[in-house]
């Protein structure tokens, strides 16, 4: 494959960055951020992923067509996540019938 030759220095730098971020993920896991536990871990993972895709996979130096293909992949992944969340986050909006066992112990009719 012809194309851009990346200096070894860049690879080493990216490798070190990945190592530091791995350490950060481990460190953050010991701090309880409550609702932010997952977002924090995911945010670090996304940064690491971008480093790998852009430098190790050479997307930064690739033609526009390749970049478009990569972006398309992430776009469709975002569709999967967004529409699944559209279900997950709205599931409790509609009123639900009571469970039969709880309904039996409730004396008044729910109005």
């Amino acid at each position: 494959m012809s194309g851009h030759v990346v200096p070894v220095k860049t690879y080493v730098f990216v490798f070190l960055a990945l190592m530091v971020l791995t350490g950060l993920t481990t460190g953050v896991a010991f701090i309880d951020l409550h609702a932010w536990n997952t977002p924090a871990a995911l945010a670090i993972a996304v940064v690491k992923m971008l480093l790998v895709v852009l430098f190790f996979m050479h997307v930064k130096y690739s033609p526009k067509l390749t970049k478009m293909v990569v972006v398309a992949g992430f776009f469709f992944l975002s569709l999967l996540v967004a529409f699944t969340l559209a279900d997950e986050l709205t599931r409790n909006w509609s009123p639900r019938a009571l469970d039969w066992s709880t309904a039996a112990s409730v004396t008044h009719s729910p109005r």
């Binding site: 569709l79 529409f83 559209a86 279900d87 709205t90 599931r91 509609s94």
Partner: peptide, 22 residues
């Protein structure tokens, strides 16, 4: 075709709001 998959799940416990979009 990537935006319609929830129509397989209208009666399986998916939120009705998501069902509406799908």
């Amino acid at each position: 075709s990537f935006l319609v998959w929830g129509h397989h799940m209208f009666v399986t416990g998916q939120s009705v709001y998501a069902g509406l979009i799908f």
